[in-house]
Nucleic acid binder design. Structure first.
Lengths: 338, 338
DNA sequence: ATGCGTTCTGTGAACGCTCCCAGACCCGTG
DNA sequence: CACGGGTCTGGGAGCGTTCACAGAACGCAT
């Protein structure tokens, strides 16, 4: 981070004051729309502002007010997920909606390397934001620890294992996975596999646990394949592997819709009929689900609500209100794929 | 933006100084890793920092240094594009890579309402960032004007019409569209339509212009349908409309891969063979392209490079170096869909 | 006249840091 | 012994605001 110090000097509140023949205090009052300033003074200040081209220095303001009016949203995802995971966009937009309404600025920070991780932690601790929403933290995430140590108001989307006492909003992945798997079994399948992903996260772990629970007696460890990410590509690959292990498979639970879409392609490429030969269910109810032919049976997850509620939890903390963890409802969307 | 002023007082540099029995100056020197501090002093300060739990207040630091070490990346997209457009993620990651290497923090600001637009403009002007990368600006964007007025170092991704003299990095959409359309015509098609999108932007306009140029004599205005966004849904709809107008259509240029994917679905649902009956080409070379069956012939657009170069342009301005506009190369990826 | 409440204005004191200058100290050299 | 040069430390000034307080000016009732 270098710099050539050549930026032209910006007008300050003092420049405005002297141009208007008034004092700092009065200028500050009109800039902030406070009471107790005469009509004459107001006009003079507004004219002076235009004349000298003044715009408020937020840094100085934030320093004295001891708050920034900004909330960070931290995304810690591997490269590819930024494109593949539709939930992130929804979470982002949901959070932005409630913060915007409360006149907070949402600033999104992405972590793509260890270096980023440190810099972002500094950013959070440095007083540059009043709080943070953290998406997809992993176990022993330095960010989570930083937040915890400094007491920055924060909320997690998803329930990071190993970080107690921090407000979060999540869905019950295990229960939802169990529910959709049961639906799938309800269509009379008996040889059902799972393409599991992201087992380093609570969502991945819990979906697998839910699957096992639903399968009960029928569960066969050989019919579970594991991949690091929720992607179309791994869905394709995972399905091929499953078919290799068990060509007579008649059902599959994919850990996300993107994965399910990949699996469906793999199935159709081997000439199998969906849902005739193999039934397939996904997770997310993202735009993937409607795009598949046949359309995907899946778990509807309210991603935008997740973002909204997380933002609300952060605001609650800032305002000194209670901010209880929250588990949002999911529902099974039953469509043509199983 | 309210607040209950109850945050616990943070330790300051003075607290560290008195705990270590040294002065502010010395503490500052060790915190910033400067020379001329004795080993004893360094140890004492480090111990004191741990003891009082000090973390630097970046706001105060930024105020005196008159720089923030942060670069804003502004995304002004309608809701749905945040999920559908794979380019945005690549641009983001590209920009982050170069800024991270230069030890700048990338902060992403999204605009989703007029209110956001104003707040973001304030954020940019208020000294909270040292520069900005602006993605997908539209004509007469308030953000663009704000940047222009205050002289904040900035670079645009894409070439916003009506905003001269601002560095940008873009691709030649018209030339690329012309090239791929020519390829399509080269397979012997004569009744070729286009699903055009986002005509309020340079990319949308230019792709249409390129299409027209390639078609020459063959161009038929009835075979162009227009939609506001580059989405799968509009691709589906657009293809159905085109087929209604001209059931014997034998080729189509979709304004993006997502649009092409929708179009392909529509085509296949009417029982048409791709590329046998109808050839189809897209734009972006996103993950959509490989996901279609057959795979999509498309224009490869280096989205990550776009982000990298834009970030470099901003850094160049900060360093007082020249920052010429840049047009990046595209290439035609010829695959199975035409 | 005096007092009181309201509106309006100016100013000193922060906020927490960095920068710079002055001075102390130590060492080796002429 | 004086001197120059390097190393180390302390502290004043200043970054551009907001905030609290003091005081001026005014009208109105006592």
């Amino acid at each position: 981070m270098e710099s050539t110090r050549t930026r032209i000097r910006r007008a300050t509140i003092n420049d405005v004051a002297s141009a208007a023949g008034l004092s700092r205090g009065t200028v500050s009052r009109v800039v902030n729309g406070e009471r107790y300033v005469s009509e004459d003074a107001k006009l003079a200040v507004e004219e002076a502002i235009l004349k000298v081209g003044y715009v408020r220095n937020s840094v100085a303001r934030n320093l004295v007010r001891q708050q920034s009016g900004a909330i960070g949203l931290i995304i810690h995802e591997p490269h590819s997920l930024l494109f593949e995971d539709p939930n992130i966009g929804s979470i982002l937009l949901g959070a932005n909606a409630v913060l915007s309404a409360a006149d907070y600025q949402l600033v999104t920070l992405i972590i793509d390397s260890a270096r980023d991780s440190r810099r972002v932690a500094d950013y959070l601790q440095g007083g540059l934001v009043d709080g943070a929403v953290i998406v997809s933290a992993r176990e022993s995430d330095p960010i989570a620890l930083a937040v915890k140590n400094l007491g920055v108001p924060a909320a997690f989307v998803g329930h990071p294992p190993g970080i107690p006492d921090i407000p979060y909003v999540a869905i019950d992945n295990a229960a939802a996975a169990e529910a959709i798997t049961s639906h799938l079994l309800g269509t009379g399948r008996t040889r059902v596999g799972m393409i599991a992903c992201a087992l380093d996260r609570d969502s991945g772990q819990d979906r697998l646990a839910g699957f096992k629970a639903a399968m009960g007696e029928l569960f066969d460890p050989e019919l579970v394949v594991e991949y690091p990410l929720y992607t179309y590509g791994f869905g394709l690959e995972g399905m091929q592997e499953l078919l290799r292990r068990r060509p007579d498979l008649d059902g599959v639970f994919a850990a996300s819709d993107a994965v399910a879409a990949g699996a469906m392609t793999a199935l159709q490429e081997t000439g199998r009929q969906v849902p005739g030969d193999v039934g397939i269910v996904g997770f997310d109810d993202s735009s993937w689900a409607l795009r598949c032919r046949p359309q995907l049976s899946t778990v509807r997850q309210p991603a935008d609500l997740l973002g909204e509620r997380a933002a609300e939890l952060v605001l609650a903390q800032i305002r000194g209100l209670p901010s209880p963890a929250e588990v949002l409802e999911t529902s099974v969307m039953w469509r043509g794929s199983a």
